[in-house]
Design a protein around this nucleic acid. Structure first.
Lengths: 339, 339
DNA sequence: ATGATAAAGGCGAACGTTCGCCTAGAGAGA
DNA sequence: TCTCTCTAGGCGAACGTTCGCCTTTATCAT
């Protein structure tokens, strides 16, 4: 209705009280006569008053914003995770009166500068970090600054900070146990470079499951490389070209993109996936269900992770006691036709 | 270094001038002696001063934020578009001194309430809308409020507002012309319900290309339904079960998800995709290249669209003259093995 | 010498809140 | 009647900027 901004003073004038009184009444900080209350509420309604968030934040010395920088998916890479994670954070943040402020991911020292700038300009009350790894400089920096943050993912064990993570080892273990239960013994794994914390975590699940089943780890079955289609395909071709008595009967990849590369390789070698060769991925990308055959994969509770990150961060920011600073969520194996 | 917030007054005290002078100097609004300039800059550097954005926005009566509500991808749907679009907006906004404020998409009247609230609370200076359709209530509302916004997508032709869109008709036309050039005459199209503006736009390209080639439109070749895998598969099964002299030799789908459904159907009928049956999708989802066979698809310049939306919106917000209120971007056909 | 002009910088006010303290009046106990 | 207490609400200040206007001093032409 009114084009111009409605302020507390406008409401106060209409209700016949001082504007500070309106503020207090709306915030429940003051007892007033029922009749006054009614007048104030009517004025608010009629004018369509909403508190000016900027002024409120100014006064509070806070911004009620959560900074979040995310690695954009490189074009051509299949990655639905960031999208889902952000979406879930936005929903949860909105529910508790916060907003998520996404800012561009940057490489090198510019990255820390971006975080520093946001802190100094009072733009955010805290951060959620994703794609964390060993020795993450952002964690180091924020710890030193004593600035509130929550990491989605673990880092160095001796650093003390709040994190939410998905139990990658458990995911892989579940998948490998499933394969073993189906009678597989020669199980290969397409893993990531050693500097990837997530990769090592997921790999550990493989090692654990194999050992628990008393199957020796064949070093030649543990391949490491970047998590791309091409690498997954090349590794699988290598495995399939082993002499037939050494050739694995099942292959697990640490992400779906590699698994899809593995499927392509199997097709090239004329193998029927799911019968001649079992393949399992990790991530349960939306496309997994539409592949031929549909890909068995480990699904991560991404939405819940986003939710937990925000919940934890808000508690930290507001100085509430935090029940548990570490949240480890369990993934689940989605069984389809590929294994 | 300093844990506490550094303000203009701190800088001023150290430089030995009034804090207003510091403000003006930093904003280039004032000439000072070179020596004073040097002292101020040194103080800024040493204290690590950054202007408090909240206070600055308060004074400016603006927030330098762009509101953006996006339909989260339903789990199981393949949609990389929103992710890419948001990422591009964030980058561009950051380059011109703005931030993007994502807020949750809501259904029904709550949706307009969300926009209204953001306006009234002075939270955003403008909006970018995506997933617009005919009679979009958000456009109606924002036009009435005279609040700045840019739509990613067109709506009713008689509404006057700024938009950025991708020329869907041109994309489909290009694909159909390619098919015709390869000798196809019996070309079917898996289209969307009639209430979808985007769907109708893309369909028009099919009609245009067929007419230009003087190929009559076979009504049975134009199928409409939701853009899902199951619908795409069902439609394709229907087409493939036509008597052989009526069976289409090529099928275009208005998105990749339907095209993947079509591929599944073709496989079920024992057809070799790319030789016995040509299939083309739309969107060029990241997975398209990894399908078997890799899917020919129409790629949209999403990043450029995000860029243009922000550019246009910022011009509107700042009252700069806008060269063109309508931007129509051209998609391109990515040819792979499926057609 | 004098007034005009420009350069360098100070000062008060305002943006819209919230917060703490103050006050006018009413009611009540002695 | 006097004081004491409670209630309902007013008032000034402050958050950190930016903006407009004012003051001081030096420079210069007359």
């Amino acid at each position: 209705m009114t084009a111009t901004k409605v302020t507390l003073k406008d409401v106060a004038a209409r209700a016949g009280v001082s504007y500070q009184t309106v503020s207090k009444v709306l915030n429940g900080d003051m007892q007033v006569a029922p009749e006054t209350m009614e007048r104030i509420q009517a004025a608010v309604r009629e004018l369509g008053y909403r508190p000016n968030r900027i002024a409120r934040n100014m006064r509070a010395g806070r911004s009620f914003m959560i900074g979040y920088s995310w690695t954009q998916t490189e074009p051509g890479q299949v990655n639905h995770i960031p999208d889902q994670f952000l979406s879930s954070m936005v929903r949860e943040a909105s529910a508790v009166g916060y907003y998520v402020l996404p800012f561009p991911f940057q490489e090198g020292s510019a990255q820390i500068d971006a975080y520093r700038d946001l802190i100094r300009s009072s733009n955010v009350d805290g951060f959620v970090l994703s794609s964390v790894n060993y020795n993450d400089p952002r964690i180091q920096f924020l710890l030193k600054q004593k600035f509130p943050f929550v990491a989605f993912g673990r880092s160095n064990p001796d650093w003390d900070f709040a994190w939410v993570d998905i139990d990658g080892a458990a995911g892989t273990r579940q998948a490998i146990e499933y394969l073993i239960g189906r009678g597989h013994r020669r199980i290969a794994i397409l893993a990531w470079p050693e500097d990837s914390r997530v990769g090592n975590d997921r790999l550990q699940g493989y090692l654990d499951a194999m050992q628990a089943a008393q199957i020796g780890i064949e070093p030649g079955y543990v391949l490491r490389g970047e998590g791309t289609f091409d690498v997954g395909r090349a590794m699988t071709l290598h495995l399939l070209d082993l002499p037939s008595e050494q050739r694995p009967t099942a292959i697990m990849a640490l992400n779906d993109t590699m698994a899809i590369g593995a499927m392509a390789a199997a097709r090239e070698r004329g193998l029927e996936i799911g019968t001649n060769l079992a393949i399992i991925g990790f991530d349960d990308a939306p496309m997994a269900q539409y592949l031929f055959p549909p890909l068995t994969s480990v699904r991560q509770p991404i939405a819940e992770a986003g939710h937990k990150c925000v919940e934890l961060l808000v508690a930290l920011v507001e100085g509430q006691p935090v029940a548990q600073k570490h949240v480890l969520l369990q993934p689940s194996l989605i069984i389809r036709a590929s294994a």
